[in-house]
Design a protein around this nucleic acid. Structure first.
Lengths: 178, 178
DNA sequence: CTTACTGTACCGTCTGGACGGTCTTGTCAA
DNA sequence: TTGACAAGACCGTCCAGACGGTACAGTAAG
């Protein structure tokens, strides 16, 4: 049955993210993922023939999800809103879910630093696009980097900023973005 | 001889950072560090009885170095300069050395996520201090986060921003910081 | 005699991965 | 409707290798 396969795949991916977040990125072993996903190691290896493929799928899913969210936010957003503002809002929302949703990235980098390349190229792409759509380069730089900082804090599960401070930051950025 | 011990210690620490940067954070094994440092594995374990101790030393040295640099920049800086501006300049300089100087952090996190706690607490401390010294909270938030973003890009060896864009960013931040 | 190592041999553990086997499901002729 | 059977989805076991760490004998310097 097809539904079962898809289900397994997603369950495994989610399980991998969970394990990385909860047990630390160094503990992201196939065994751990398999047992967490309620799947045998063999079953895992059936879906992802190699650990690298698992990581790759994690990266690709992550990027695709963000891309889709960005696209839908762009079309659904208020018409007067600048693309930069949309980007800020979306990223802030995403960071608001207090889960460090992507700590598996650390595992991926540890496994093989090359997993960064698709991420980097995606980011560059997004940035270049924003650059073409934003008249004020200075505002773009400040906002983009600040968002990147927010993302980083979320990734490292940092608690430097309070909830209120985060909200103040976002509203300041939106002000700068115009 | 004391000098010998200190030398070994520093050589090992530097070697660890190099290995992490060049071979990827996942390849930071004791064997690799020892051979890179020109030291036997036994000698390494003499200086750092455990891998965790090595990591801890890496973290502590890193934090201490930044703290010292910040302190000296504060006293040496132009008298009219705000502490936030000093922080921005120092961090930007630090990020300008295009080496991702701290990719060993990934190894440390993979080894044990608790290595983040001293870093987080250090950052919070710095931030709190800046908060007490900066009248404009909004400006502080934006600048601090943007610097954090810059740090993150450096850490991930990202090439999204060009050299000129980085400089423009920093000058914009200094403008915001007043 | 102590300090600060070097060098080697070794152990237990864990990991990714290969493999062969097993259960389930869909297909299709009779 | 049924029974044979191929394909797909998954399990459990096993293994080579790498890793962190230990133990210990040796040595060069002071």
């Amino acid at each position: 049955m097809k539904a079962r396969r898809v289900n397994s795949r997603e369950k495994i991916l989610a399980a991998a993210a969970d394990v990385a977040r909860e047990s630390g990125p160094g503990s992201l072993s196939l065994d751990a993922v398999a047992s967490r996903a309620g799947v045998s190691k063999g079953g895992l290896l059936y879906n992802f023939p190699t650990k690298a493929k698992l990581m790759q799928a994690l990266v690709e899913d992550y990027l695709r999800a963000f891309e889709r969210a960005l696209e839908s936010a762009r079309t659904a957003g208020a018409t007067g809103e600048s693309p930069l503002a949309t980007y800020i809002k979306l990223s802030a929302e995403h960071a608001e879910e207090s889960k460090p949703s992507a700590s598996w990235i650390f595992s991926a980098i540890a496994e093989d630093p090359d997993f960064l390349t698709p991420i980097k190229s995606f980011r560059r792409q997004v940035f270049e696009r924003l650059k073409g759509e934003t008249p004020d380069l200075k505002a773009l730089l400040v906002c983009y980097l600040a968002i990147e900082g927010l993302r980083s804090m979320n990734l490292f599960d940092s608690d430097v900023l309070s909830h209120d401070e985060r909200r103040l930051l976002v509203s300041s950025l939106l002000e700068i973005a115009g």
